[in-house]
């Protein structure tokens, strides 16, 4: 059993930043429902209220039968009162293409790098019966578990490979998980 860990450090989650811009990040895709009263006052980054957006015919807002409004995005308070984060935010100030600091995240991680279970048949009776000195079966799993506060796929990767420019995540592949079965026959 092999555990690997890296403690501390930060990573720029450019993947999340880009996906947020395109509306395909799960953080930008939540459906939020607000009451009619809230919809009349809560504004998005363009300065439009949810109600005004719906009235302008925007397909980004739905008026529900109970009078509430549903839009894709979230309501957040940065300290100056509640605001609506929707497409006008995610493709603007909230986009990873513009401001990177919100996408710099804790890159600590610990993972179960490798786990092997092995069973060997080498008893005297087995040897006598098979004329073999031993047979062993092993099941190995690599990269089975990852514990990390990082919001991307895998902080144990790097955009520029094994270079000094560390901590960059922009659509590179994660570590692959693999499962191996091993059969060893000793004559």
């Amino acid at each position: 059993m092999l555990f690997d860990a890296s403690v501390g450090g930060q990573m720029w989650n450019g993947t999340q930043g880009a996906l947020t811009n395109f509306g395909t990040s799960k953080y930008a895709g939540a459906l939020t429902t607000v009451s009619a009263a809230d919809a009349a006052v809560l504004k998005n980054a363009d300065g439009n209220t949810i109600q005004a957006l719906q009235a302008s015919g925007s397909s980004r807002v739905t008026l529900n039968s109970d009078g509430s409004y549903t839009f894709r995005g979230e309501v957040k308070d940065f300290g100056g009162g509640k605001v609506v984060l929707d497409q006008s935010w995610y493709t603007n100030a909230g986009s990873g293409f513009n401001i990177n600091s919100p996408f710099v995240q804790d890159a600590s991680w610990a993972r179960l790098r490798e786990l092997t279970l092995r069973y060997s048949l080498n008893s005297a009776a087995f040897k006598a019966a098979t004329k073999l000195s031993s047979v062993s079966f092993a099941l190995t799993g690599r990269n089975l578990l990852l514990w990390t506060p990082y919001k991307g796929i895998d902080p144990d990767t790097n955009l520029t490979g094994s270079s000094n420019g560390r901590g960059l995540d922009y659509f590179q592949n994660p570590n692959t998980r693999s499962i191996l079965f091993n059969l060893t026959i000793t004559y």
Binding site: N21, A93, S95, I99
Partner: peptide
């Protein structure tokens, strides 16, 4: 598109 949407909206550093 992309960062030009933000830049045009005065999102700049």
């Amino acid at each position: 598109d992309r960062q030009y949407i933000g830049l045009a909206n005065y999102v700049t550093s």
